[in-house]
């Protein structure tokens, strides 16, 4: 469904994503893992079409990502990006104006789950509430693929179960979910595949249950094996 072909992105002299080739299939929840600055966010922005690759390309259903793919791929950036004048309601209306797969009813349902109200001003939201709003408005789209960059950032321990359940409830067999996080334990049970990225390069893409069966290793263990020596 989403294929990265030798994708490379450089910023000046720095290479943020370095020849990443990767195939992501629908019906799976992928955890994209790596320390901060490893290239997860940059790769997602390339896949969302916000960044243009220096070399290589990302394809969605066989076509290079474009205006067309934005109709079917719901991307949530890790930074807050709503206009400062917006209320929670304005954010929903904005998505409704631009995304055909957005459902305002579903948005209202998600807001309720997240304990947010339409009248709140985005400027006045705490970081936790902002994180929830971003998830609510993104998941209110009936997209083919969801890419959430750090969905658990800023969300307290108790609310994480809620968020996980919410994300899982939309993970059907014809959807692709890609979640990046540095909170590896949060992703252990909900992901079935993991993509490990280090210094802009793909380390491996593994099936988690297979890895547990064959090697008796959890995703967090594998994370430590890969990055342990670099992070001390």
């Amino acid at each position: 469904m989403l294929e990265s072909k030798e994708v490379t992105k450089t910023f000046g002299a720095k290479t943020a994503v370095d020849h990443i080739s990767l195939k992501l299939e629908k019906g799976h929840v992928y955890a994209m893992l790596g320390p901060n600055g490893s290239g997860k966010t940059t790769w997602m922005k390339l896949a969302a079409g916000l960044l243009k690759p220096t070399y290589g390309m990302v394809c969605f259903n066989g076509e290079q990502v474009s205006i067309e793919s934005r109709k079917h791929v719901a991307y949530m950036s890790t930074e807050p990006y709503f206009y400062t004048w917006m209320t929670v309601k304005d954010v929903g209306k904005y998505y409704q104006d631009f995304f055909e797969d957005f459902s305002y009813d579903r948005y209202l349902k998600l807001l309720k789950q997240m304990e947010l109200t339409e009248k709140l001003k985005t400027k006045a939201l705490s970081s936790g509430m902002m994180a929830k709003l971003k998830i609510a408005v993104t998941m209110a789209r009936d997209a083919q693929a969801y890419m959430l960059d750090e969905p658990f950032n800023g969300i307290d321990l108790l609310a994480r179960d809620e968020i996980r359940a919410c994300i899982l409830s939309y993970a059907t067999e014809d959807k692709l979910l890609l979640l990046s996080s540095h909170l590896v334990e949060e992703m252990e049970a909900i992901a079935d595949r993991a993509v490990f990225i280090s210094e802009g390069r793909l380390v491996e893409c593994v099936d988690l249950e297979e890895m547990r069966t064959r090697q008796g290793v959890s995703m967090a263990d594998r994370y430590r094996q890969i990055y342990g020596h670099t992070e001390g």
């Binding site: 019906g27 799976h28 929840v29 359940a165 899982l168 993970a171 049970a189 909900i190 079935d192 249950e209």
Partner: peptide
């Protein structure tokens, strides 16, 4: 089952 246990639907 996936939702109540908080696990991946494929699992």
């Amino acid at each position: 089952l996936a939702l109540s246990c908080g696990i991946n639907p494929n699992t």
